[in-house]
Nucleic acid binder design. Sequence first.
DNA 1: CTAATTATAGGACAATCGTCCTATAATTAG
DNA 2: CTAATTATAGGACGATTGTCCTATAATTAG
Lengths: 187, 187
Amino acid sequence: MGSKGEALRQRIVAAADELFYRQGYENTSFSDIADAVGISRGNFYYHFKSKDEILSAVIDSRVAAIVTMLNEWDKKFKDPRQRLYYYIDMPLRDQENICLHGCPVGSLCTELAKINRTMLDDANRMFAVFRDWLILQLNFLGVRKNVKKIAMHFIARVQGIVTVTNAFEDKDFLQQETKQLKKWQCR
Amino acid sequence: MGSKGEALRQRIVAAADELFYRQGYENTSFSDIADAVGISRGNFYYHFKSKDEILSAVIDSRVAAIVTMLNEWDKKFKDPRQRLYYYIDMPLRDQENICLHGCPVGSLCTELAKINRTMLDDANRMFAVFRDWLILQLNFLGVRKNVKKIAMHFIARVQGIVTVTNAFEDKDFLQQETKQLKKWQCR
DNA sequence: CTAATTATAGGACAATCGTCCTATAATTAG
DNA sequence: CTAATTATAGGACGATTGTCCTATAATTAG
């Protein structure tokens, strides 16, 4: 069984994941990833036969990571309102990277909308996982009307904050808007 | 005087502007732009000596276009609240493009944050022009406290809406969130 | 008209891109 | 141990990239 090959495959995905986040998908070459992992391009191509394929693997890996993370949040916080706050605070906990590279989910979707619309439908699953989890928390909170709309509203709010934070490299804005968003209540 | 050359220069900038918006900066080559204008690559290089230079010209052109547009809005609407609504409705008036390509300002900043941080400081001037105009309108409305913060808040709200609209190709979301944002009032 | 300047075309340039192939090396199965 | 499979390295491939050069065409200045 290819257990050693599987381990390398995961290292490749992890390296590609970070590079796509830091310098964008289009701007990251096979060589960049191979160099980061410390293997040859030929070997890289043995594991992933095309750039679409490595992108697809990175998206799957991110979706899985988000699911795992949300499960941990569920264990950590029993109060759905606390969980909601923890979601809103997520960019705050990763200020440096958010400031420099934006949101891994949002920025990838924004890029794919321009260069690879086929993969966009794959990428926005990352948003969908958050959305479905948010819907659950809103249900727990007793919200009954427009639950999906409100979940999407939260995602959009966070995306907007991150986009502006990234464009202006402005952590103060991130902090102040995050605080304000937590004052949200159902209208 | 190079008045014919100047006319071509503007056609080049216009073509690059649209291509950068539709397929991204990194993913647009000199050949793409030259083909779109119908000139040779050599001629293109006579007018713009590097990719940074054409990007810089596109950003300047966009900033100027935004200034012109906001002046027209000022003529068109005397009520600052109406002007604010017209700003919020901007993505709605360009639904098709927003859905397909996102925000020209936001998506360019997001891309440049990853591939060309030097130019990012140039690009976010596009946001700054909107911000300063919004500050003016808020002043007219009698808002005295946190005016800059509120202006940035509006920009972030619109950015978030557009990012999600683009990622999900969801016009309904755009319409409903736009309507909700117009219910905003100072707290 | 002539000379100088500006504009345009076309191709050369090295580098890099994604892709693919082949020859070994390492591992596993029998 | 031997044979088969899996993994790895290295380089060839055509295409494309941004950049630059040179020769000509068009325009302008005297």
